[in-house]
Design a binder for these strands. Structure first.
Lengths: 366, 366
DNA sequence: TAAAAAAATGTGTACGTACACACTAAATTA
DNA sequence: TAATTTAGTGTGTACGTACACATTTTTTTA
């Protein structure tokens, strides 16, 4: 009612009829319609929308009224078409050849590239050696030097990431990360709550715990893997047990892939461990060791690597927590593209659900 | 190399230079570029692309060559802009007021509607009473009579769905479903593998099974809920136990919400059941009954209803299987919109992963 | 060989937005 | 009051595609 009254007062009879026509017919409101209703030219409407001044107070009010009454939304297609620039996105991730964990990640990215092939974006993927922080910085700097519109990367190393972020900040390049969250500010992030993921692992193990159970958190390759990652998971894990079974001691062991079998065997036998929370995708190493020792045990670990899946199906691993690297990559890339192309805003920080995988539901994952 | 040779033979010197320029510069190939390289007008290129004939053999070959060499991809934005029709999508889902299971579904749809507000689509949501097949058919027929471009619905009732699908087939309306899969053909479907989901439930329970355990599958409200749904889950559940513990007898019980507490109490006491696989979102009813009987037990059920979550956190329910109705709805609607707007093709049948929820990872779900 | 018919090709316009430029009206100055 | 500045407004064009229509070229027929 209010709406009508206001219009009757501010618009002529004919404009009112046109307004009713627009509201009744299923038709998208264009800048032209606004111009007609406000009885000005589209140029004036355009100046109002973009706040470029040179508009009389009277016209401004009429246009703003029409804009609001008709709930005008600019057509993103026409806007993007007119815009006519090709956005470049540079992506830097660990080399999947060096660590197969990143394979689904590359695959996810390639799918998105194909999906937006026909649009005005130029996406390129680059790799660094996950065991060499230097290669990360070097590649990163190279890419930044080319001034892409956005830079998406996995901040595996804290200090080195800071350097890249600093370089990026000077250049007005959109900063986006996934998998790990760097200390410094980024414009967009997709990841998982690692602390919570540790608690999930704890709960899964806790369900099987007996008074005599011996529990250990195993970190593999802490040296050149993401140390903070593992720490946060461990903290989450321990916090759960502190709440639910305060008396239960949790062992912690850091091992190297080098002599992993030997080191682990000794550790397991010495401490009589029969329940394991493995904080990395190399969970299969623990299962393999247990197998070689001909021992039974409960193992909860991370990620759907082929080796892990094999043990999951055989029963050597009870549960895997899925970090969905592929989904993380494709989601972050997609939001980046849509931000640039249609300036669609999505939440800065997106935390993906922590997915529990057992021998059965694994079949439902692609 | 081959590519070059072919071009040298088929194009003039100047065209070749232009081709090199196009390849080197980061620039999207337009119909105009093709016309220039093939040395014809854009009209001719257009006729070739749309196979509208009236093109000489020579021109056709030149254009096709250029199209392929330059890997032309039509700009979906310009195409959609030119197209200039408003697509209508009618959605029919069970009334969330009648069954709260459908609340996230409505929410998911509303989010997508907002997301595409500025685009040329007109999406409307309508509800039917999940306990009244007639209301489903009636509402459905009404919507179909309005000739939307696409019709997305939850085929809760088999026979009634067939009727709607028949009506749809006559009218060239895109048919899409989610949650349940109807017997007859649809153009698009998003759902879950229910048989597998039954197996997942089985595995979760199996991990806790003792020789003395008594296991039951509980169906609640089979009468007006989706009977096939429940059957498939039960089959999956039993198939797992047949494989892993052939001797173990699985009880089955169908109960009505009416006198559920009483019926269940009797059933549980008579059969000494202590492990439950509940095939519907009313899992909390079993937990409540067990609570009132002051008994302990293992319960695995479905869906993140507030009542279920409360028992999950208290420990009355061990695991919930998440059918993600909201995600199913938004995913199917999104693909529908993108299909109409940009004729982007996505796979006809999309099966979502079966997600296992416990008291911890539930926090990571929105 | 000219005229007519048919085939092939090119041109112009629209979609909705954005922006440069041209123009008109009002305000200021001489 | 005329000349000039300035505020306000309108017009035209481009983005890339699609399609109607106009134009040119080739083929057929008289």
């Amino acid at each position: 009612m209010y709406v009508h009254t206001k219009l009757v007062l501010s618009l002529t009879q004919i404009d009112l009829l046109f307004w009713i026509y627009l509201s009744v017919m299923k038709k998208k409101i264009t800048i032209k319609d606004i111009a007609k209703v406000a009885n000005v030219s589209i140029g004036t409407v355009d100046r109002v929308i973009h706040k470029r001044g040179k508009v009389s107070e009277k016209a401004l009010q009429k246009v703003n009224a029409a804009l609001e009454e008709l709930n005008y939304k600019a057509n993103p297609l026409a806007r993007s078409l007119k815009n006519n620039v090709i956005y470049t996105i540079a992506i830097l991730i660990p080399d999947p050849e060096k660590d197969p964990y990143w394979l689904p990640c590359r695959k996810g990215i390639e799918e998105v590239i194909l999906e937006y092939e026909a649009f005005d974006v130029d996406i390129s993927v680059h790799f660094f050696d996950p065991s060499k922080p230097k290669s990360f910085v070097q590649k990163g700097m190279e890419l930044i030097a080319k001034n892409p519109n956005a830079f998406l990367f996995v901040p595996l190393f804290e200090r080195e990431s800071d350097r890249l972020l600093q370089a990026l900040s000077k250049k007005d390049i959109v900063k986006a990360t996934f998998n790990s969250l760097p200390r410094n500010h980024v414009d967009q992030h997709v990841g998982q709550d690692l602390y919570l993921s540790g608690r999930v692992g704890a709960k899964l193990i806790y369900d099987f715990v007996q008074p005599a159970s011996k529990i250990a958190v195993i970190h593999i390759d802490e040296a050149f893997n993401n140390a903070i990652h593992m720490q946060q998971k461990e903290e989450g894990f321990k916090s759960f047990f502190k709440e639910m079974a305060p008396g239960h001691h949790i062992h912690t062991k850091i091992v190297d892939t080098q002599h992993i079998q030997k080191t682990l065997s000794v550790f397991i036998r010495e401490n009589q461990i029969n329940m394991f929370f493995v904080t990395t995708s190399k969970t299969y190493e623990v299962a393999r060791t247990l197998e070689s020792l001909d021992m039974e045990g409960t193992i909860v670990g991370y990620d759907l690597l082929p080796e892990n899946l094999s043990y999951l199906k055989k029963g050597g691993i009870q549960f895997l927590i899925h970090q969905a690297p592929g989904l993380q990559a494709s989601l972050s890339l997609k939001s980046l593209v849509e931000k640039l192309l249609f300036d669609k805003e999505s939440s800065k920080k997106q935390l993906l659900p922590i997915e529990i995988i057992n021998s059965e539901n694994v079949e439902s994952y692609p």
